[in-house]
Design a protein around this nucleic acid. Sequence first.
RNA 1: UGGGUCGUCGCCAAGUGGUAAGGCACCGGGUUUUGAUCUCGGCAUUCGUAGGUUCGAACCCUACCGACCCAGCCA
Length: 555
Amino acid sequence: MTESTRPLNFIEKIVKEDIENKVVPSVQTRFPPEPNGYLHIGHAKSICLNFGIAQTFGGQCNLRFDDTNPEKEDTEYVEAIKEDVRWLGFEWSGDIHFTSDYFDDLYDWAVYLIKEGKAYVCDLDRDQAREYRGTLKEPGKNSPYRDRSVEDNLELFEKMRAGDFEEGACSLRVKIDMASPNMHLRDPIIYRIKKASHHQTGDKWCIYPSYDFAHGQGDAIEGITHSICTLEFEEHRPLYDWFIENLPVPSKPRQYEFSRLNVNYTVTSKRKLKSLVDENVVDAWNDPRMPTIAGMRRRGYTPEALREFIDKAGVSRNEGIVDVSMLEFAIRENLNVNAARAMCVLHPLKVTLTNYPEDKTEVMVAPGHPNRDDLPARELPFSRELFIDQDDFREEANKKYKRLVIGKRVRLRNAYVIEADEAIKDADGNIIEVRARIIEDTVGKDPADGVKPKGVIHWVDANNNLDCEVRLYDRLFNDPAPDAGGKDFMQSLNPNSLEILKGCKAETSLANSDADIRFQFEREGYFIQDSLYSTPDNLVYNRVIGLRDTWEKQV
RNA sequence: UGGGUCGUCGCCAAGUGGUAAGGCACCGGGUUUUGAUCUCGGCAUUCGUAGGUUCGAACCCUACCGACCCAGCCA
């Protein structure tokens, strides 16, 4: 991919200035997913931003699992996320980090805050705490436990850690301001009791730090200079800064927020994606229609194209919705350059060339790519019986139709020009065969009589081809904003998001190709073998994306 | 009169006092053995609205309008 000279986004500008002004010696970022689900296209933006900035400015980017809630997390997700990040083309700095690596530090810092008189154990239960918190428009009031002595707090917190209390019985809160207009500053909870074993620390802990207490300190421990997150964390920033100021942390990271990536015709929330899987709307998290990284990988999107798309969509604080056509463009742009060409007939219609000898077979040679000679040429057997696509033949048509019509000529891609004579139909009137003739001496040249064919269609030898299944995907939703307002996104599902075609006929050169190679089936789109269903004996191709189609169907 | 944030072409997005980049989409012309690619051209007298400051404003000021976020012992 060529380096574009796009202007820096606002975060890149901040980083650049901080480096130039020696605010930081070098940039250190991090991608901090919670291992509680699969990564989707929105995460891809964060990955590209964080790793991209490190790359651009000669810094480092960590991969840190933000694992402070053992009830929702699992190592299954840790592994999947690592694979997704690698596939996207990024390499994290050093070892993987876990917020749970810092549980000891965090515990010590909690004790520190208690000793400073800045944290206390609160016995209010959930409902009471909510009551005391006040509302958006009314201030909260102090917890009756707010003024416990340091000694009592130390003892109580130790008991919390020892497992002496039930879940919910009490929590550790930091003493800030119950009247703050910022709800996050109304004595936020920094430790809660969860008698759950943790995927990394096992049963060592029964109390776990909250996101707010863990994230910034994790950043400080890792020397993160620019802690980049999405807009909804903006109001957490004063709290983030409060901890950094009030704790003896080893560095002072700063938080910056950008708007998350929204794409029309798709949903990106773990909850909604999960229900698509749970309700069997799709196969799994990696169904080729899913906007998950795993799904897009299986679909055949390339990491380069995804990165390019994210780069083009930009980074700002505007909450916009990017048009999915921008994504599709990036995929096509990338595949057009890189995908080898091949022919595959999706809806076979037999064509008999009545003036072509029955026992004759020629071998046509076709380039691997129209403007790349580094891709090897292909050999295409050609004989009396061929298949073309049902859509490429009509008994009669107006002049806008540039395909095969009775009495008219068409070019068979990389082979002869043919002229149709007759359509053979079955008892129901369905066309089951076309009888046609080749025009002699038209391979690589126009007909000698000067009557040039209108169009070019693809074909495959009827007696020498590869049978395969082709899966055509369309957007999962019909509605550009499936989850806008109070809408039930399940009502906007596109019933035709998956079309399975069996008995498709592909050229034989595909027989021994690697399973992960993407092809352009000419005039149809870009395809790749499905990593789950395709086998050498039962080829299954996914359509990554169709070709741009500017032909107005409809007469 | 709770607090915070955001409003530049249909969609993203530059621009931050000197007279509206770019991409996607769309519309036309050309090339073409893929109705693809490629290529050429078109596409905001106007920057949420209304006032004001200024020689000059999308950029500064004021008011208004609209959208989003915050009351998890989720992240």
